[in-house]
């Protein structure tokens, strides 16, 4: 280890994640019996021993095919899924920002901003101070009174991004949230991520857009079938990944 590397902020140590799912169809029908308790349960081994160290000032792109375990990795780094084996260490609680992170659809954008902020640990006064900034960044002033279920997917992901970014995070995990925004918003949020990295934060970015990975990241991790296939310089890893397709 050389000294010019930043201080470690996230350490992932031999991480295994397993999902239990209920199957139907052929596999389930074969061993269907009321008496066996594990009827139709299939264990999906989503991550198989992933290890790495992330440091201050790094912005790490995470790439891989659909279903390779990228989102699972993000969720477990943020502590939302308990590992079956192995551990995740971090200097502060990582904040996850994902496309599926629906808040409460039947409530207005305004109330979701409030709830999201409160859940992130802000006080009502802090949220009040930042409210205009959050809504302004998401560019949603006109629609903030509408229920979120009436938002387009781009609009709601913009709002979620703004809520998550309103708090100063040391470690931020962005799961394809930028892909849904329009071009202008994408540029704005990529600038925000770069600014955060310069403030010695650590950012993980899951994306299928190699351009956005190359534009924002200074390190790339390639996850393939639950295993860490490659880890290193963005250009090299992206080139190897593109070739493999």
């Amino acid at each position: 280890m050389t000294d010019d590397l930043g201080k470690p902020t996230v350490v992932v140590d031999n991480l295994h994640i397993k999902y239990k799912t209920f199957t139907s169809g052929k596999t389930a029908a074969q061993n269907r019996s009321l008496l066996t308790r594990q009827r139709g349960i299939k264990v999906v081994h989503a991550l198989k021993g992933v290890s790495f160290v992330a440091r201050e000032g790094e912005s790490i792109g995470v790439i891989g095919h659909n279903g390779s375990g990228k989102s699972t990795l993000m969720r477990s780094i943020s502590g939302l899924i308990a590992p079956a084996e192995g551990r995740v260490f971090a200097s502060s609680r990582p904040a996850l920002l994902g496309v599926n992170a629906a808040l409460i659809p039947r409530l207005s954008g305004e109330k979701n901003v409030l709830l999201g902020g409160l859940a992130l640990g802000m006080t009502p006064a802090e949220i009040n101070d930042k409210f205009d900034e959050i809504v302004g960044f998401a560019d949603l002033e006109e629609f903030i009174d509408l229920p979120m279920k009436n938002y387009s997917s781009g609009m709601s992901s913009r709002l979620r991004f703004s809520i998550a970014m309103s708090r100063d995070h040391q470690i931020l995990l962005v799961d394809e949230a930028l892909a849904v925004g329009d071009k202008e918003f994408r540029a704005k949020s990529e600038a925000r991520i770069r600014a955060m990295r310069e403030e010695a934060g650590t950012v993980f970015l899951v994306s299928h857009s190699m351009k956005s990975i190359l534009d924002t990241c200074n390190r790339v991790i390639w996850i393939d079938h639950g295993e860490l296939k490659m880890d290193g310089d963005p250009r090299e890893v992206v080139a190897a990944y593109t070739e493999s397709k």
Partner: peptide
């Protein structure tokens, strides 16, 4: 093999989700 736990300990990191 890298001792990840030691790296985490030295950097004063805490287990996430504990």
């Amino acid at each position: 093999p890298t001792d990840y736990e030691a790296i985490a300990r030295d950097a004063g990191l805490e287990r996430v989700g504990a």
